[in-house]
Amino acid sequence: MLQSAVNHKEEVYYYRASWLQLFRPMTLTGTITPILVGTGLAALQGGFRVDVFLAMLMAALFIQSATNLFNDYYDFQHGQDHDKWIADASAARGPAHHTVPYLAITMICAAVIIGFWLAVQSTFWIIPAGIAGIIFGYLYSAGPRPLCSIGLGETVAFTFLGPVVTILSYIVQGYTLDFTIAFVSLPFAFMIASMILTNNIRDIEKDHTFRNTLATLLGRKHAVHLLITLLTLPYLTVLALVLAGVVPAASIIVLLALPAAGRLRWSFRKGASRPDELSGMKWAAWHHWAFGLLFALGVWL
């Protein structure tokens, strides 16, 4: 009944917040920082092309932004997040609900065009990788069984906003895939998975009635234990990379992000209040930004 009502009134609903918030800018670190580090590693090995770097960054941002748009669009269709949408156009600052997919498709088309240019400039392996990223980004939220509703949200993010984007930003600079860049990508895989898991732990009560996220499948206690593991592994990986001489010693600067990780963990302590849990996603985003930018700074220095 709710689904029918939403579909019937779909065209009169508008995004309550601004266009900028619709793109979820705090999550875009999942694309920006791995590309900075992948390109930085290329620079360490002999140089990089600024135009290729900027094109890779824009294409990846378009795909991630489109994924975010599809997520908000389909969440509303599935009866979720009604507080984000309002029927009064004069009180809204964002687009109409039914226009969101068109905007997302436009961004994907732009990413495809840039991707073809990158393929000509570097390697055609970017084409199948980009296509896979677009398909999984769409299936993350769309369809009768979205990937985020069957416990695969963290896995998809781990793969495409960890190894895939980091490795691609390296090989488009003219270098070949090797174990070095694969290991360098792992901290970002753990970090983005921790962001998705944080979101799912926060929404356990809301999600358990209609979808099975990894957090609902594990239960809050075990999901928090997994979150602690995902918050610890990026630091251990960077330490190992420094000791192995893969990244500069300056990369140890990532330890300055530990207070944000601690605050995120505190948000999900036993007996945490609901406002504390709601603040967890904010701290997950700040932690990813801090860790990623510090890691990039350590590599580029």
Rank of each mutant, 00 (worst) to 15 (best):
Q45T: 12
Q45C: 10
G46Y: 13
G47Y: 05
R49S: 14
R49G: 05
D51W: 13
M56Y: 02
L57V: 08
M58V: 14
A66M: 10
N68A: 06
L69A: 10
N71S: 05
N71G: 04
D72C: 05
Q77H: 06
H78Q: 11
H78M: 04
Q80V: 04
H82K: 13
D83W: 08
I86K: 02
I86D: 01
A87H: 03
A87Y: 06
D88I: 01
A91I: 04
R93K: 10
R93E: 00
G94P: 00
P95W: 14
P95S: 11
P101T: 13
M107R: 12
I114S: 07
I114R: 02
G115D: 11
F116E: 02
W117N: 07
T123N: 14
I126R: 10
P128W: 12
G130Q: 15
I131V: 06
G133Y: 08
F136H: 07
G137I: 03
Y138K: 02
G143F: 07
P144H: 10
P144R: 08
P144T: 07
R145E: 12
P146R: 09
L147S: 04
C148F: 06
V156T: 05
A157G: 03
T159Y: 10
F160G: 00
L161T: 01
L161W: 02
L161M: 09
G162T: 01
P163N: 09
P163G: 06
V165D: 03
V165M: 10
